[in-house]
Design a binder for these strands. Sequence first.
RNA 1: GCCCCGGUAGCCCAAUUGGCAGAGGCAACGGUCUCAAACACCGUCAAGUGUCGGUUCGAGUCCGACCCGGGGCACCA
Length: 955
Amino acid sequence: MSDTTTPPTTSTETPAHRYSAELAQDLELRWQNWWDEHRTFETPNTAGPLADPETAAERGEKLFVLDMFPYPSGTGLHVGHPLGFIGTDVFARFKRMTGHNVLHAMGFDAFGLPAEQFAVEHGQHPAITTAENVATYRRQLRRLGLAHDPRRSVSTTDPEFYRWTQWIFSQVFNAWYDTELDRARPIADLIAEYESGSRSTPHGRAWADLTSGERADIIDDQRLAYVSEAPVNWCPGLGTVVANEEVTADGRSDRGNFPVFKRNMRQWMMRITTYADRLIDDLDLLDWTDGIKTMQRNWIGRSNGAEVHFPSPAGDITVFTTRPDTLFGASFMVLSPEHPFVDTLTVPEQAEAVAAYRAQAGKKKDFERQDETREKTGVFTGSNATNPVNGEQIPVWIADYVLMGYGTGAIMAVPCGDQRDFEFARKFGLPIVAIQEPPASWFADIEPTLDTAQWSTAFIGDAPYVQSSNGELDLNGVATKTEGIERTNAWLEAHGAGTATINYKLRDWLFSRQRYWGEPFPVVYDHEGRPHTLPDDMLPVLLPETESFSPRTFDADDEFSNPESPLDRLGDWVEVELDLYPERGDGPQVYRRDTNVMPQWAGSCWYEMRYLDPTNEQRFVDRDVEKYWMGPRTDIRPDHPGGVDLYVGGVEHAVLHLLYSRFWHKVLYDLGHVSSKEPYARLFNQGYVQAAAYKDEREIYVDATKIEGDDKTGFTYEGRPVTREWGKMGKSLKNAVSPDDMYEQYGADTLRLYEMATGPLDASRPWETRDVVGMYRFLQRLWRTIVDETTGECVVVDTPADDDTRKLLHRTIDVVRTEMDALRFNTAIAKLIELNNAVTKLDATPREVAEPMVLMAAPLVPHIAEELWHLLGHAETITYVSFPEAAPALLVDDMIEYPVQVNGKVRGHIEVATDADSATVEATALADSKIVAVLDGAAPRKVIVVPGRMVNIVI
RNA sequence: GCCCCGGUAGCCCAAUUGGCAGAGGCAACGGUCUCAAACACCGUCAAGUGUCGGUUCGAGUCCGACCCGGGGCACCA
């Protein structure tokens, strides 16, 4: 980059006080120190350790602005990272100037796989590399002039922070879901109910008759965090298990792109599925984009339907279907090859074929089996089951398009109404019974018929039912699916053949990782292997020091390897003697610590609340403080859920972080620890900064900063031709631009302004270093309107502005206020440039324009604004000065110009008084000489006058 | 295949939500400054809005079909 740096000018040629990169650097560093020394950005709380209720009240209405906090990578920031951070900073600064007590802070999401991998690569302990990386981030972010409250900057790796992550885990562990009240409750309530007998045990035996082990099993089975032996995603290449959300559609880890295998393992799970309905339903309360809401709904995957039981030689085969109304068309069944009934149902003659098919299916991964373009395969078991609505015997097949992991692992096949079943039936010659009469229009080339042999596809849609009656249940003639489903469900329930039910795609959250760099579980196991959480006063459970922090990883394809937690190796740490239940009087016992660590997502599930009260040692956040910053804003909307007022971050966290975080928040809400139902009331997704990347003839990316040539001449790298493409800025495409280079070449204010000016905050935009100069020139002009470049003196005059300039100023104020409030900083900047361009044409800058102009620029370019504000004679920071307000009288002109159209084409212009009525406007338009000429005597058929806009004459 | 978001000047973006296509920046071109250049400054140029059709006095904006780019989901019963 440095070879394109603006060449330094000699002092004899450039005015000493021109706004140059050097000058910008100088004043920026000076103001950053000033802000720190004067604690300018410290935000008062209303209660708790950071309380200052008087200042809080003075500042005004509360506003909590939040960025998705970064993982501090080893390569430092590039200019793409801070796009959102700058946006929230501008917004937060603007809101401070319009009477708000704004909380804006920045922490670090520093636990997790990438931090650990970085440490392993550098042969350094992750605690050291993480601290270094955080320091680099803090330096780079501070240099941007972000107005964060430095007291509130936390890292998830601080023991004082993860103490509370562990505490929340304990809360989840010691909670159960009361389906009656539809909320989580403390586990103590459940025990009390069993003890009092108001709740009966699952197997009906009296609580008092159970052994302590039996009681523990009953309780442990209902905890919201539980240990389970279940199929999990084992990733040998990472040496750990990962959550469903961390597995890509093609069955690989989203981190590192290693193969992932389904294996039964004993792991921690979180019962997020109990919250599935609320996680979907409460989306309606959130001010989020439809796109993100849809992604969450899809992930949770709620579908309404019924479970139906089909009697078979192996017992009732239960299927889940969303279309119970099509039961009369169920002409065969298909089980997943892994279904437990397959062995019993397989007749001897089919045993060989079934075994061969199962072996072959077992080798395929789920994602391969889900490729819908594959031709259907399957094998008959030889047995039949009974269709409960009509008593028909229907064959039971197995096929790998039915997955054990969804629904019940078995389906009823309705080939006339389901394309997959239709294809399967055609291929294996199974019967296809029409149960709906498709409309004539559906039959493309043939006469309408119920003879499905002539159909080319299944019919999906609403149409009257036919051949759908068993005497009691008669759907024939019913025209809508809704009614068909309702009637069938009622019949099924009345006859014990099935129940209406809801199915979800969402699975419980796999919560343990076999890594080192994460929060240890606050859990020990007794001699029977039962988990116990440690009492709160024993938190945090510190991550033990060790030099052997590398996880054991395996050959990425070694499916049958087994995870080994680094913490397992620390025998002295693992074994611990504790008196967990002094009230029982059984003395200290030997326990084994849990050697898993929590996933990276744990800290980000609640970090925003620690910003609120970072030094509180009694609670994770003071109740009143949480209520003040995040409580429901029922004054805005009766059903406001509470939460952060504005949350800005990338769309890539649509499912993972945002789903987990909402889940934890709801548990905390249920247990009465927070007043908000949701963590993030408003979510805004910022775009990405993209940059040109270049590949040489070997298809390898080359350093984008060393490219020569352009569009027309072609691009070269070290003299060899390369091809250009666009991609998200980053290390892998070798197209990262460091903010440090921009600070040096232009200063932080120019960088901030450039990033905000290139487009609306939610749009991705290409980075063009050569374009940055435009914003630099604007700041130079702004500087020059107020400062004499040779003397450094303020040149602002106290004479009033002329009318035109004053009007332009107030129109600018009006627009800038609106645009900044709506996060449209690009248009606000355009208006400021326009105003400034007008002011530069004046002989001298009137103070009545200069001051509002500097105030309006302050949120965007705080350093130069502070300097100019100071030069204008103010001693205090500009941060809390009121934002200018437009005088309504100055927003309207006396006279207004109307375009006059004839048949929609502009043919002339007229000028009339702003308050002229339509008749006057019309008369003026018809009298205009140009219009008279165009009309050429023709009589207008109609004249349309849009007040304040235009006139259209129709002839 | 389905669901979002987007397509306006050479490039990045505006357009009061149906009312004169242009606010701003880059580039280009001409000029001022300079011995010359760079910086800076002044000025100029530029598209009829992805395509086709419709509604309307009037469409970038609304409706329908399609094309292109980005993202998400996908044998989910």
